[in-house]
Design a protein around this nucleic acid. Sequence first.
DNA 1: TATATTTGCATCGTGAACGATATAAATGAC
DNA 2: GTCATTTATATCGTTCACGATGCAAATATA
Lengths: 150, 150
Amino acid sequence: MDGRFNLDNQLCFRLYTASRLITQSYHPFLAEFGLTYPQYLVLLVLWEKDEQPVNDIAKRLMLETNTVTPLLKRMETEGILTRSKGKKDARQMIVTLTKKGCTLKEELLHVPEAVGSAVLCESLTPERVPELFAMLDGLIGQLKENQSNP
Amino acid sequence: MDGRFNLDNQLCFRLYTASRLITQSYHPFLAEFGLTYPQYLVLLVLWEKDEQPVNDIAKRLMLETNTVTPLLKRMETEGILTRSKGKKDARQMIVTLTKKGCTLKEELLHVPEAVGSAVLCESLTPERVPELFAMLDGLIGQLKENQSNP
DNA sequence: TATATTTGCATCGTGAACGATATAAATGAC
DNA sequence: GTCATTTATATCGTTCACGATGCAAATATA
């Protein structure tokens, strides 16, 4: 019984659970505006810089276009953004926020803080958040590197 | 521009990405045996203790039964486990590993180490893994507590 | 300038997640 | 014992993720 299969020794299970639970904690705030968490992520990207091709959005979120395309289509149906063929490069689809998409930024202003403060506890104090960020960034970078070098 | 919406300041996005990427890194090892990562998690639970009702498995994985039931059905179809009505309580479905399900434990013995070593880097050394575990456990505990106290 | 390759996006199929809802068995109240 | 409530699981619909594949526009090569 060397415990290597024990769920409590698994980093991946912790990340999987933490990710699910924190995403769930966004739900009440986002559902109010008919948004899902991945859709909120797309908004974060576009609020940062509007009028981006699908590929840039996908790269920023580290997702594939086959995940992002249907997501964007649903958001287009909701009137949050528009998709139009690129003029320089006709293969590209340029994604642009509508007025509704821009307005959501104002309406969701309080969300990051509300969710952020809800996760803090004695094991995860504000001072330790940068450590957590650094470790997760290291892990993400390492995994990205591994998948580039097969 | 207070950056509260900046993707790089978001804990949730980091967890979401880290979870996806590390799950992906399990894929080559599990696909060889026709398994998905959530199915692997079910196996971890059952290898720990066989013959559990659906609810116990769901609780251990912090998932709802409406997620776990279809997962178990697919695994039953694959011949990895069986589901049978509980004798004491006819509402319960007791999940039991088949010989194939037990054998997989031997065949996957090297997986935890292989994936584990692939994520280590200078920001995430073996000595710092316990810190990461503690922070994630704190976060998970906090979020579980929040959803109990509405 | 033909042709080959790459790039950007989309389509398809499968398997999770999860909110909402349903059903049957067990338990509790009276 | 009868009826209400709770519990254990399942069903349904929607939205991701993602591997595999397709297609057309752009670019590189001959």
